[in-house]
Design a protein around this nucleic acid. Structure first.
Lengths: 254, 254
DNA sequence: AGAATTGTGTACGGTATCGAACTGAACAGC
DNA sequence: GCTGTTCAGTTCGATACCGTACACAATTCT
């Protein structure tokens, strides 16, 4: 992780930061630092005491659970709609999951102490963080049922959609091996599922790069889990001002 | 659900209520009402706006997710260590899961407004509820990976242990059909797994009544998920005073 | 006591996923 | 341009779980 100065990126590109009242922004923004997250980077390990929280801008972070056997599964995913490190303000300081960068990009880092100070002022930040946490809970619940009842094909669609929502365009940089780790299945299973989607003209992929060609079809093929999570997240989190919407235009030269 | 007056039961038998500072107890306890929860009762449906929270005493409540197809899976379980209805103070007011009574018994009900009032005083209750919420998150995460990677046999063990921890003795009142709904598998799968455990002398069961004969063996046969959740819950939640520990003695004549 | 209901046991074919092993192609570094 | 590595495609048998169907026993109802 590398500290960066880049005037093309602003904290407002993270939805949570964007909707804070001006007074909170004034208190927090002087302390946020732009950092670059590399693909595969482990931001914290299960059990680590957290020192910072991260507000992704165009990066995606997976909360990944790794079992004793080495088998793994993604619990939830965080992009520019959220924050990495909720355990910091929830009081536990650490979690039983690992945070790993699933898509390289930028994020704003804030020292845990700064966040908790603001948190305990009991202003708008408290409520916002709690509602975000509830949306994460929704995502985890849905992941649990999805793991139980849906096929790899369906889950791949869900996964791609959740990733897509957090990126500026239709290009995902991720290998089938990575996706397999996230879904907690074999790489071959992903190859097969992705092959079907490719044959249907829904996606196109080559050596770690996936392009979504037909998003609607992807939604049709996905299980209900994607829609449920999206709807609930929209309900729980306020929508920022239109002018702060993340567009591909203001990040082309990252 | 039925309002009850019973001097054998006190709010202190719920761990969360028990560890509150005296001043908070004084403010809240006048408003808690003892209610009886019947087996199978739906406390709230997915999407319902919550009016109350419940602190179980000797009852167990499952947070159950039901899909469009009717298939279901338990997301997490709440007993006398916790509270039902976290969405009330998390700010979402409703959740995408259903709360259903998995083991009949008593609980203390508190009007949501009373709770949120105390919550926003930002005293000890806030931190306690947040840490409890984090322990729930741990449980949900673990459920997600468990669904992905472990056999029905292992999951049954985990399920029985989690239930056992929330009951005063070794007797569970639940049919295999119910367990199947919770685990999100077929009833026959549970019959087979339970049959194995019975053959091993770990449990004994007859028509909706299960007695655990060898808890240690049950833990050995369970996947790691039970231990992980238990350890993390112990870490996150303070232990109450010894004198408030829940013993079978003070509930024999319920 | 007889009938209906509920809880459990069992069986059989079907299938999604696994585990392991190997191939070929694209890319990166030297 | 060659070499090593990464990524994807394919195959094969094994297996955990599913869907369906039915039998039987214990309990409850009438």
């Amino acid at each position: 992780m590398q500290k960066i100065i880049n005037t093309q990126i602003t904290p407002l590109q993270n939805h949570l930061l964007a909707v804070l009242p001006d007074e909170v922004k004034e208190r927090l923004f002087p302390f946020v630092e732009l950092v670059k997250l590399e693909l595969g980077e482990v931001m914290y390990e299960a059990g680590d005491k957290l020192a910072n929280v991260y507000f992704p801008v165009d990066s995606i972070v997976s909360l990944l659970y790794v079992m004793a056997s080495g088998a793994s599964a993604e619990i939830s995913v965080v992009g520019n709609e959220g924050v990495v490190g909720i355990a910091l303000f929830m009081g536990g300081e650490s979690t039983s999951s690992r945070a790993v960068v699933q898509s390289a990009g930028y994020a704003y880092r804030l020292k845990g102490k700064r966040l908790t100070e603001e948190f305990h002022r009991h202003g708008k930040l408290l409520g916002l963080m709690l509602r975000y946490t509830q949306s994460l809970i929704t995502q985890m619940s849905q992941t649990a049922v999805c793991n139980r009842h849906h096929t790899i094909d369906q889950q791949l669609c869900r996964f791609l959609l959740l990733s897509l929502d957090r990126l500026p365009d239709n290009n995902l940089t991720m290998t089938q091996e990575l996706i397999a780790n996230m879904l907690g299945v074999r790489r071959e299973g992903v190859t097969e599922a992705a092959g079907k989607l490719q044959k249907l003209g829904v996606i196109d992929y080559h050596r770690g790069h996936i392009t979504v060609l037909n998003r609607q079809k992807l939604e049709d093929l996905s299980c209900e889990c994607y829609a449920v999570v999206k709807k609930e997240t929209d309900r729980l989190l306020p929508h920022e001002n239109e002018k702060f919407y993340y567009t591909s235009q203001n990040v082309t030269n990252l």
